[in-house]
Design a protein around this nucleic acid. Structure first.
Lengths: 204, 204
DNA sequence: TAAATACGATACAAGTCGTATCGTATCGTA
DNA sequence: TACGATACGATACGACTTGTATCGTATTTA
């Protein structure tokens, strides 16, 4: 999915980067308009005013184009935000992620994660370039929170991240429409509050 | 996805239920063997020793067959289990769900949820017949836990279920392979423990 | 017996796939 | 300037799947 333009620049006519961008844009446009299901290379080629050869020279199939378009700039699109406390960092970053999920790119990410369930290469790329790229940073938020005495010292950072972010992905892919299906900031806040405070009754 | 055999039994030769079962079985078999990506009606027909017409008379496409095979008996496959405490009920039911996710049917569910991201009809069926069917029961576990004073009275049951089950679906679809990617019982237990106890440091 | 429907088989047009082959255009290098 | 190498758009190609239609036969109800 990465390394789209692997080529020795030794000789020959170089690839036109404008054409590359046009193809990416055409794929996203067509997908968001008519759905990513029937998205075909031929349709993308026609919509971009480009020969099929030109596409196949860069990507192996349609999903590689979409993945490339999204994964190229993960960090920019749904950035992580560090604040003074672990709770603050996590809540702020989750809000940004939820906002991303709500937007048009969320629809693309849904289609990508969906397709990844039957496409091993895409699945691997998604985990490495999207999920782990974010998680490696998020894990530090938790570790620092533990080090500062803000969080319980016996916590497993990955379990914590799962408990917080798992519901977000769950809502993205299978919104059950029970009042929280919109991935709103209020939902994120309620989630953070619930997980941080725990479920058990305190005073007794 | 439900109501596979909608037909007036007034006259004519009735459908052969054995054939219906054979088609379902053939679809699952082929999918688990060769992957659900390239699964075609023609292949299923050939593998089941059946004409394409016979399949199209029952389902509109391949995914309807698979969905039908899985959603037909949700309750039996990953049952919910009530115990004396809400925590016990949730932990036990989550273990059963995780076991289901680990098994061969988990692969099918992955493919189904994946396909549902670009198939509105399937998406709706999955939420109504799988997710909500389970959630409506699970919600009562939480409500009773609150009523009995076991859980905090100000909890939103759906948020609680999201925090617990969200990570399970997250791990099913995007296992990040950091030691917990196996959806083991230990993972479930750690998750329950973390969410129930909360993240904040108690003694201070 | 007659109407109605199911069944397996085969044929069909339409669409997409991935590859190959054109002639033309654009680069680096001799 | 000339040459080799590669990119580009266009077109054609065989292979495959799709969903529908049609055939002769089988099975059920009325």
């Amino acid at each position: 999915m990465k390394k789209v333009n692997v080529r020795k620049p030794g000789a020959g006519r170089p690839r036109d980067e404008d054409v590359t961008r046009q193809i990416r844009a055409a794929a996203m446009e067509l997908g968001l308009e008519s759905g990513f299901d029937g998205l075909s290379i031929e349709a993308v080629a026609a919509h971009a005013g480009v020969g099929k050869t030109t596409i196949y020279r860069r990507w192996r199939n349609v999903w590689s184009i979409v993945a490339d378009a999204v994964l190229d700039d993960v960090a920019k699109l749904a950035p992580l935000q560090e604040q003074s406390t672990a709770r603050g960092s996590l809540a702020a970053s989750m809000r940004l992620a939820a906002r991303y999920f709500r937007g048009p790119r969320g629809k693309v990410l849904r289609a990508l994660i969906g397709r990844a369930q039957v496409d091993r290469t895409l699945h691997k790329a998604l985990i490495e370039q999207w999920l782990l790229a974010r998680r490696n940073v998020t894990r530090e938020f938790v570790r620092r929170g533990i080090a500062k005495g803000e969080l319980r010292p016996d916590l497993d950072p990955d379990i914590v991240i799962d408990a917080l972010y798992g519901p977000l992905y769950h809502q993205l892919l299978l919104p059950y429409d029970s009042g929280h299906g919109d991935l709103s900031d209020a939902y994120v806040d309620a989630l953070v509050e619930t997980v941080f405070a725990g479920l058990e009754r305190k005073g007794e």
